[in-house]
Simulated assay, not measured.
Amino acid sequence: MVDLEELEPGKRPKKPRDLSTWNIEDLEDYIQAMQAEIIRAQETIDRKKGVADAANALFKS
């Protein structure tokens, strides 16, 4: 399945997986896992932007 450690910052990206041998069910599971990870990353970005915006507003007096 999906090795999320490959996506951690600071790690060198590995060459893309050969998906040609995967069956359809595994490919669909892989897509779902990647979509969930994208959502999680976007939520983290949104939280960080919110904190940055709040800090900027506080110090912009």
Rank of each mutant, 00 (worst) to 15 (best):
Lys14Cys: 01
Phe59Glu: 15
Arg47Pro: 00
Arg12Leu: 12
Ala36Cys: 06
Lys48Glu: 15
Ala41Gly: 01
Ala36Lys: 08
Val51Asp: 00
Arg17Tyr: 05
Ala33Cys: 07
Phe59Leu: 15
Ile38Ser: 00
Asp53Phe: 09
Asp29Tyr: 05
Asp46Gly: 00
Ser20Gln: 13
Leu7Lys: 03
Glu6Asp: 10
Arg12Gln: 13
Lys15Ala: 15
Asp29Lys: 11
Ala52Phe: 08
Arg12Pro: 04
Gln42Lys: 05
Asp3Arg: 02
Ile38Pro: 00
Asp3Val: 04
Leu4Thr: 06
Lys48Val: 10
Leu27Ala: 15
Asp29Cys: 08
Lys60Thr: 14
Asp18Tyr: 02
Asp29Thr: 09
Tyr30Ile: 00
Asp46Cys: 09
Asp18Lys: 08
Ser20Thr: 14
Asp26Phe: 04
Leu7Glu: 01
Met1Trp: 12
Lys48Thr: 11
Gln35Trp: 07
Asp26Trp: 02
Asp18Ile: 08
Leu7Ala: 01
Leu27Trp: 08
Glu25Gln: 13
Ala41His: 07
Arg40Asn: 02
Ala55Cys: 04
Gln42Glu: 06
Pro9Thr: 03
Ala57Leu: 06
Asp46Phe: 06
Asp26Arg: 07
Asn23Ala: 04
Lys15Val: 15
Gly50Asn: 08
Arg40His: 07
Ile39Gly: 02
Glu37Met: 09
Tyr30Ser: 03
Arg12Tyr: 09
Asp29Asn: 12
Pro13Val: 11
Ile38Phe: 01
Glu25Arg: 12
Glu6His: 04
Leu4Gln: 06
Ile24Asp: 15
Thr21Ser: 14
Ala36Thr: 08
Pro9Phe: 01
Glu8Leu: 02
Ala36Gln: 12
Gly50Glu: 11
Pro9Arg: 05
Ile39Leu: 11
Gln32Ala: 13
Asp46Ser: 12
Ala57Val: 00
Asp26His: 05
Lys11Leu: 07
